[in-house]
Design a protein around this nucleic acid. Structure first.
Length: 441
RNA sequence: GUGGGUGUAGCUCAGUUGGCUAGAGCGCCAGAUUGUGGUUCUGGAGGCCGAGGGUUCGAGCCCCUCCACUCACCCCA
C-alpha cells in the first residue's frame, strides 16, 4: 500500500511544528496570564460517557470501538465533556475550578478546507460560576489570544440560547423538530441572504408566514454595534422571560468586555446557533476577517447542565475552544507565520578531521550561553557546510580552523550579509544574540 | 454522507485525433586545481503517468471500480 496517513489526518514536518509550537507557547502564556493552569485527560473514554452529549450528528462522527478487553470505548470528541468528567471524578476540587487543556480531538467528519479528522483544541473553561463576569472573561481571553498571535482582524459573534428560545416562542413555533429546523435555517441566514431566507421560512413555517420572517430579519443585523442589536432584540423578545434574562445577561457581559478588552470585535448576532446540544447560555463563534471561509477558529459557550450530569450536583460552567490546526492553516495561508526549518542560530563548521574536537568544544561553549547550535555532522568541504547552513536557514556560521585554534578565536560569519569577523567566544555570543534579536524574533 | 472537478518527477505543470526509449521549470546530487555559501556554468539521479480491471495490434490519453485531493451542500475548531 501507499505510505500515507489516514484521510483527514496529517503529518507535521519540522517547519510546521516549529511554527505551531511557537503558536502554542503564546496560547499557553495568555491562558496562564489569566490565571488558568493546565490539565490533561486520556484520549479514550468510555463510550457511554460521551454518548448523548453532542446530539445525533456528533454521535455519528465519533470514533468508537471495542478495546482489547472488549470495553466499549470512544476517542474524545472535544475537551469539554472530558472536563465535566474530570470534575466529577475528582470530587473535592475547589470551586470555582479553572483549567486549560491543549490536546487533539477526533471527529470522523468529511475533511474540507481547514477541517481535519484529528485536530488540536485549546480549551479554557471556568466551572462553578454563573455570572456575566465569567462569560465576559471567556470573550476577553479569546480576544487576548488572537491579539497575541498577531491576528489583526476578527469578528466575535455572540448570541445566547435564551434569545433563540424566545425568538422561537415569539414566532409561535413548536419546540422540538420545528425549533430545530428554524435554528438550522437561521444559522444559514448569513450565507443564503435575506431573500432566500424569507422564501425558505415561509415555505417551512406557513403559520408564522412572511410576517414572521420579517420580524427575524429586523433583529438579525449582525453588523450593527452590539448594543444597538440588543435594543432591537429587546423590542421583539423583551416580553419573554427567557428573552429578557438573556438580554440582561448579554448587556452585563458586554459592559465588562468593553472595560477589559474591545467591544469593536464583538457582534451580537441572533442567527448563530451552534450545533453542540449541551449549550445553555451565551454562545459565540469567532471568524477571521480576512479568511471567513475557514469557519470558526474559536468558539464556545455556557453549558450549565453538563457537569451536573456527571457530578450529581448542578455546576454552571462556561468555556471557549480555540481550533489550533484550523487557525494554523489560516495563518499559513495569510503568510503571517515565520517559517523556519531549524531552531538553530549558528552552525559550527568542522574544519577538518583533526579539528573536529575544536568544533565540539566551541558548540558546547555556545550552548552553555543559551544558544541553539548545530555542529555539521562531518568534516566536509567548507562549501558544503556553508550550503548546509543556508539550506536550513541558520543565520550564523562559526569556523575554528588551525589558525583560530592557535589564537583561541573563531570566525563568525553572518550569512545574510556575508560579513565575517574573528572574535572570541564571548563576543560571538553577543553578536549572535544581537543578530537574532535584530531579525525580530 | 450526496453531487461536481482533479490525480503525470520532491514541487508547479506540458503531453497534439490513442502510435516508438514520457518532457519543462524549480528543487535535489556531483563537479568547475583543495580556508568560505547565496550568482553563473557543466554533468547527473529521479516517473509501474494515483491503484486495480477492461476495450484495442497498441492506453498517460477511452470505459468501469476503488483510493486520494478539491469545490458546493451538510455540519463544525
Amino acid at each position: 500500500m501507499k505510505p500515507q496517513p489516514l484521510r483527514g489526518f496529517r503529518d507535521y514536518l519540522p517547519e510546521d511544528m516549529l511554527a505551531k509550537e511557537r503558536m502554542l507557547d503564546t496560547v499557553r502564556a495568555v491562558f496562564e496570564s489569566h490565571g488558568y493552569p493546565p490539565v490533561a485527560t486520556p484520549a479514550l473514554e468510555y463510550a457511554e460517557l460521551l454518548l448523548g452529549k453532542y446530539g445525533d450528528e456528533g454521535e455519528m462522527l465519533m470514533y468508537r470501538f471495542r478495546d482489547n478487553g472488549d470495553r466499549d470505548v470512544a476517542m474524545r470528541y472535544d475537551l469539554t465533556v472530558p472536563l465535566a468528567r474530570l470534575v466529577a471524578t475528582h470530587g473535592g476540587l475547589p470551586m470555582p475550578f479553572r483549567r486549560y487543556q491543549i490536546a487533539p480531538v477526533w471527529r470522523a467528519e468529511k475533511p474540507a478546507k481547514g477541517r481535519f479528522r484529528e485536530f488540536v483544541q485549546c480549551d479554557v473553561d471556568l466551572v462553578g460560576v454563573d455570572d456575566a463576569s465569567a462569560d465576559a472573561e471567556m470573550l476577553l481571553i479569546g480576544q487576548d489570544v488572537l491579539r497575541s498571535l498577531g491576528v489583526a482582524s476578527v469578528r466575535q459573534r455572540v448570541n445566547h440560547r435564551g434569545v433563540l428560545r424566545a425568538i422561537t416562542r415569539v414566532l409561535g413555533l413548536a419546540e422540538g423538530e420545528e425549533e430545530g429546523d428554524f435554528l438550522r435555517l437561521l444559522d444559514k441566514l448569513d450565507k443564503i441572504g435575506a431573500e432566500k431566507f424569507r422564501a425558505a421560512f415561509a415555505e417551512r413555517f406557513p403559520a408564522a408566514g412572511d410576517a414572521g420572517a420579517q420580524r427575524v430579519l429586523e433583529i438579525a443585523g449582525g453588523e450593527a454595534p452590539p448594543r444597538e442589536t440588543l435594543a432591537r432584540l429587546e423590542g421583539m423578545i423583551g416580553q419573554d422571560p427567557d428573552g429578557a434574562a438573556a438580554i440582561e445577561r448579554l448587556r452585563g457581559t458586554l459592559d465588562r468586555v468593553e472595560a477589559g478588552g474591545s467591544l469593536d470585535l464583538i457582534e451580537v448576532d441572533p442567527s448563530i446557533a451552534r450545533g453542540l446540544s449541551y449549550y445553555t447560555g451565551i454562545i459565540y463563534e469567532t471568524f477571521l476577517g480576512d479568511l471567513p471561509e475557514y469557519g470558526s477558529v474559536m468558539s464556545g459557550g455556557r453549558y450549565d447542565g453538563l457537569v451536573g450530569m456527571f457530578a450529581g450536583r448542578d455546576l454552571p460552567a462556561v468555556g471557549i475552544s480555540l481550533g489550533v490546526d484550523r487557525l494554523f492553516a489560516a495563518l499559513l495561508e495569510l503568510g503571517s507565520l515565520e517559517v523556519r526549518r531549524t531552531p538553530s542560530e549558528v552552525l559550527v563548521v568542522q574544519f577538518s578531521e583533526e579539528g573536529s574536537v575544536d568544533a565540539f568544544r566551541l558548540a558546547a561553549a555556545l550552548r552553555s550561553a543559551g544558544i541553539s547550535v548545530l555542529v555539521h555532522p562531518q568534516a566536509a568541504k567548507l562549501k558544503k557546510q556553508f550550503q548546509a547552513a543556508n539550506a536550513l536557514g541558520i543565520p550564523f556560521t562559526a569556523v575554528v580552523g588551525r589558525d583560530e585554534a592557535a589564537r583561541g578565536t573563531l570566525q563568525l560569519k553572518e550569512m545574510g550579509s556575508g560579513e565575517q569577523v574573528e572574535v572570541d567566544v564571548a563576543e560571538a555570543v553577543r553578536r549572535i544574540r544581537a543578530g537574532v534579536e535584530g531579525e525580530g524574533r
